[in-house]
Design a protein around this nucleic acid. Structure first.
Lengths: 145, 145
DNA sequence: CGGTTTTAGGAGTATTTTGTCTTAAATTAA
DNA sequence: TTAATTTAAGACAAAATACTCCTAAAACCG
């Protein structure tokens, strides 16, 4: 079950690394992130760029530059991140992919799926980056040993 | 949020159509399914083939041939279909896509995600095709008006 | 100022997923 | 037996996703 695109996976891993490995307001370079997490530097740059545009991160160029949280990670919910990286209707899709599906023309799975995705939405909206990342060891965010 | 591949979407739509539009043991042709549901005939053929291999459907060639349920749809759970079309570890993936993630080396989201996907698994395992399809009008399974 | 470090942005490439086409095999009916 | 109908199977093509590379712009340091 793949609910997130690679962009979201990488973005979340980077943010969780930030939570665990930056003490407050100093910038962490994207190069460090990409190397520690084994993610393509250029690809990660673009992902973090959109989080910067969305005002979840701030970036700074030049030596000792990088990215940092603009908002404290206690106030950033998983749903915020996912909505930026996956699109605004992330929690509003039809299980069967039918474009017309909705309250007034429901597919056979509509009610079933609506309840599940509603619960899932709530979980994502009630869970902060900080609560997921505060104990995150680097090793748990990497691929191999 | 796209949890299912196109193959699963199409496969489920075809099965739900079968539930609503076939009276028991007669074969429904894939041509009819593909035309009624606006799904590519050859693509759908391959999807239904794998459901036939998995013994959810039976197929018959020649005039008046087609596919039919091998098991009554009351006994086919959504999870059965999805496991065939998405793979056996569908309900066992890491949210962050980390290959090593598991009980003994959990990623920061492991516990969080394990609970959500466990609930989702239960819903899929407790819901039959029949219960979703018994009132399915054709129009609710099609794309446009 | 000139060189170095770092993010920004866009064009281009590779890989995966999705969809098409062609031929074969099974079944029926005339 | 011949023709028609239907699923089976595999090669091929298009589209979407994931990734790479190059150049620019900002910030710093000597």
């Amino acid at each position: 079950m793949k609910v997130l695109s690679k962009s979201s996976e990488y973005g979340l891993r980077a943010l969780l690394y930030l939570v665990g490995n930056s003490s407050g307001q100093e910038y962490v370079s994207i190069r460090e992130l990409s190397e520690q997490l084994d993610i393509s530097f250029h690809f990660l740059t673009k992902i973090l760029q959109s989080l910067t545009h969305a005002e979840i991160l701030i970036s700074y160029r030049g030596p000792n530059g990088g990215i940092a949280f603009k908002i404290p990670p206690e106030k950033i919910m998983l749903s915020d991140v996912v909505r930026v990286l996956e699109g605004d209707d992330f929690f509003n899709t039809c299980l069967l992919g039918l474009p017309g599906c909705g309250a007034q023309a429901p597919c056979p799975m509509h009610q079933f799926w609506k309840e599940i995705r509603g619960a899932l939405k709530q979980e994502f909206e009630n869970t902060s980056l900080a609560s997921m990342g505060h104990t995150a060891l680097l090793s748990s965010l990497r691929l191999g040993p």
